[in-house]
Design a protein around this nucleic acid. Structure first.
Lengths: 345, 345
DNA sequence: CAGTGCGTTGCACATTTGTGCAACGCTTGC
DNA sequence: GCAAGCGTTGCACAAATGTGCAACGCACTG
């Protein structure tokens, strides 16, 4: 079959045309939807293409169309359960609408981030999706200034260019307080991190407000980066004091897992009898038998679907119509998931 | 500052040239390393570029160079702890050498996978890295036949085109057996999955062989997909029998976590007193206080580094020299990580 | 049988960039 | 002062593709 030179470079439409005995235009039209080609030439072309292993060069195609088909995903901590699930969902949906994802990892040192971002602008990405709160706003501004279509997830920089997809962190956090309050908890700790991400801050604030309205004060602990280790450390600090809290709202499930483990392993406490815990995100581990964590579910599927909607309804003709999408804000609900770390009322 | 039309399409080198009062060649040379431009025009060009928000179009640049700078990563289950860590490490290293990652998620239905793969071939990726054992061999063959530089991780399809990066699964699995055997375990179960991935099969085989040589038989359970749920289910099945195993080798840490949880929650067993467990991968959760799982560490950093080495040493002039990289096979060692799920000798 | 119409095909030009080659100007050495 | 040399610049062509426009051929109709 494969009589082509194996390591040699890619096949061009010209070569296919010569083998099929038609013009290069015919080859181009064969691979363009809606173009006018007769069935016989189409067949000849497809046969020759198959034989040579021809694939349309999207780079050249994108020179002409505005649409490169590339969507750039910018995020940090993509090895984290929540972010990797988000990445999984988004890449899948993108593929379903014939887009392909370029991933920029902003966890490294920031100059390499800058370089990578520049790379991406260079590839004329169709849109840029910012997955996490960590990438600095300056990067986002660079994208916007370069005419990029930017979609922000769970940030609330109030920029006018980008679309924004949010989760009602504040509302959910208020609900978290009432769950714990109704369970009889009165000395409630808030476990957060030093990341200072908009969504985390919104959760802290929402909880604090609800507590204040109920006449309770809360102490906020920020032990380190947003992860298991920080939660564990926070647990060790908070529970070794003379006045132990009887509940904790952890702004992230990872923090909650660490906190619970500290409580049980280091102090032998029982959850939820002596200590109630509420998390956020509903990562897979929250459902594991060792944790059975009561938490709030991130509407990942809805977020991913909304992104594809934004990209598909990217009609340039509808500029400022009533259903204009540019600069829109969408907020999804994070529903509580009841498991076993909060005592039933 | 930004007097450009905000939503309008990208800036071309021509426009920069006109604003700077130079020829387009001068613009091109300004953004090409090693080209000859005087300092004064260089400055004029950079100023004009900054003002217009110009970024070099990599798509057009890649038309001329062979090097597109894109590396395609194909994998399934990227929301899994092991795979997401691998993805994290690889994307970071790629950015460090000025490449950018395109991610193809093969978890979806297979026709969308095929479409996505075609997409990627179309982008003239510099290389294709296959992350997991799941993508079918036909996809890989498509890549190879199209002249792609393919790098396989933890597969052992014995194809001649691609480079192969492996972990010594068999050796590690034999070591796992001896760890358990030395701890006094004699009724040992192997917990695996129905995925049938090469690396998982190699682990099963290695363990089985070592057991046979020691005069022991083992039972292999394959409860479902490779994950926590399947491990839990396997635990429920195996431990409810009349003759309980006293140890389990789980071919994946996720399986091990599920298995341990079933043992403790459903049957109230103590680990490692009544049941020893060994996992594989050393995912983050293996180090959590609730598990403290003894396992084998996947050399993720080494794998990622080796990939970049392969891409950097991609000297086309050295075709068949002594250090030829094409079709090479590299095997890294998976070192044991001792924690608390195996009794000390 | 001639004319009209429609589907198909090829030519030529467009997209954006890198680069060889020739020309040009400035500096330096004799 | 003039020639040589070197650094810089612009022209023109290359890369692979999509597409408008004109031409061509075939079938159908009057």
């Amino acid at each position: 079959m494969s009589e082509m030179k194996p390591g040699r470079s890619f096949v061009s439409a010209q070569q296919v045309a010569e083998l099929a005995g038609v013009s290069r235009s015919a080859v181009s039209r064969t691979f363009t939807d809606g173009a006018s080609v007769s069935e016989t030439t189409r067949k000849k072309v497809l046969e020759a293409a198959e034989q040579l292993g021809y694939h349309v060069n999207h780079l050249a195609r994108s020179l002409i169309h505005e649409d490169s088909g590339i969507v750039c995903l910018i995020g940090a901590d993509i090895n984290t359960p929540y972010h990797s699930r988000l990445l999984d969902a988004i890449t899948r949906r993108l593929q379903a609408i014939n887009r392909v994802a370029m991933v920029i990892n902003t966890s490294g040192d920031s100059d390499s981030v800058e370089a990578a971002l520049r790379q991406t602008l260079n590839y004329r990405a169709n849109a840029t999706v910012v997955l996490s709160g960590t990438p600095p706003a300056s990067l986002i501004n660079t994208c916007i200034n370069s005419g990029q279509h930017v979609i922000l997830i769970n940030r609330d920089d109030h920029l006018d260019g980008p679309e924004s997809i949010t989760v009602d962190n504040g509302v959910a956090a208020r609900e978290a307080f009432h769950m714990l309050h109704r369970a009889g908890c009165r000395r409630i700790a808030v476990v957060s991190s030093q990341a200072g991400t908009p969504s985390l801050v919104a959760r802290e604030r929402g909880f604090e407000e609800a507590a204040r309205e109920a006449g309770l004060g809360v102490t906020i602990t920020r032990a380190g980066p947003t992860g298991y280790g920080a939660g564990f450390e926070a647990g060790r600090l908070l529970l070794s004091g003379s006045e132990r809290p009887d509940a904790a709202f952890c702004v992230t499930d990872l923090l909650a897992c660490g906190f619970m483990d500290a409580a049980r392993v280091e102090f032998g406490m029982n959850v939820p009898e002596e200590l109630c815990v509420v998390g956020f995100d509903d990562i897979e581990q929250a459902g594991w038998a060792s944790y059975q964590l009561t938490t709030f579910r991130q509407p990942i599927a809805q977020i991913a679907e909304h992104i594809t909607t934004l990209l598909d309804s990217d009609n340039p003709d509808v500029v400022n119509g009533p259903g204009a999408v540019s600069g829109g804000r969408v907020c999804f609900h994070a529903a509580p998931v009841w498991r076993r770390t909060v005592r039933p009322k």
